[in-house]
Structure formats: structure tokens, C-alpha cells
């Protein structure tokens, strides 16, 4: 999928979900994990990823840890307690949206259809 606009609205949820499954991750790792999970179908642009990470950090949903790797520093992101609470609500919000979208795109689908 090449349309990044479709990903934009769900980027924060994707990040939170990935961090729920992995204790801590850094920017490059997140892009690679998304690529791997979607067999390269979804590519998160770095220009959107890093501002989203910083925003989540400012909202108190993510905490950061700096680690020295070789001759550089690496910033790891992990979920805060608030972030852990938010994952469930953000996930159900996104799932509900996808369900409704599916109903619009395929009206023959019965209500209660789950993806």
C-alpha cells in the first residue's frame, strides 16, 4: 500500500501496540517491525514516525531511555503506565473504525462482523 494518508491516523495506535508487545524499541526497529509484519505492504515514513513518538512522549504515554551503542546514542521508547492503559482503548477505537469502514465498503456484511 503506497497511500501513507491511510496509515497516518492509526500510526500512534500502531506504535503503542508494538511497544506493548516489545518491552522497548527504537525508531529504526519500529519501521522494520512494521515492514516485517506486513510483508513490506506498509512502510512507515520516518518523517511521520519520529514526530509521533515525540508527541506520545510529551503526552506521557511513552518514556525514553538513552543507551550508548558503539560510537553513538540510541533512544529507546517504552510504554509508561498511562501508555499501557491507553493501548486497549486505542486498539478498540481503531478496530471499531475498521469495522465501520468495512460496513461502508461492503454493505452486504452483517452487523457484528469482526475483522
Amino acid at each position: 500500500m503506497s497511500n501513507n494518508n491511510l496509515i497516518k491516523g492509526s500510526l500512534q495506535t500502531i506504535i503503542l501496540k508494538l511497544l506493548e508487545e516489545n518491552e522497548k524499541m527504537y525508531g529504526y526497529e519500529i519501521t522494520q517491525r512494521v515492514k516485517e509484519l506486513t510483508a513490506g505492504e506498509i512502510k512507515i515514513t520516518e518523517g511521520a514516525l519520529y514526530p509521533a513518538l515525540h508527541k506520545l512522549e510529551a503526552e506521557g504515554l511513552l518514556s525514553t531511555e538513552i543507551q550508548q551503542v558503539d560510537n553513538r546514542v540510541r533512544k529507546y521508547y517504552s510504554l509508561t503506565k498511562d501508555g499501557q492503559k491507553q493501548v486497549t482503548s486505542k486498539m478498540s477505537e481503531l478496530q471499531g473504525f475498521v469495522e465501520n469502514l468495512q460496513r461502508i465498503l461492503t454493505p452486504d456484511l452483517k452487523p457484528g462482523f469482526n475483522i
Partner: peptide, 19 residues
């Protein structure tokens, strides 16, 4: 290309807002 000037400027701006 990924980290073009406009992208980096936006990253600077967004980080400043967040901090």
C-alpha cells in the same frame, strides 16, 4: 531523500512543541 530538509525541519518543530 527520506530525511529531506523539510522532513528534518518538521521533526525539529514537532520535537520543540512536544518538549
Amino acid at each position: 531523500e527520506t530525511f529531506a530538509c523539510s522532513v528534518v525541519k518538521n521533526m525539529d518543530k514537532e520535537l520543540e512543541k512536544s518538549v
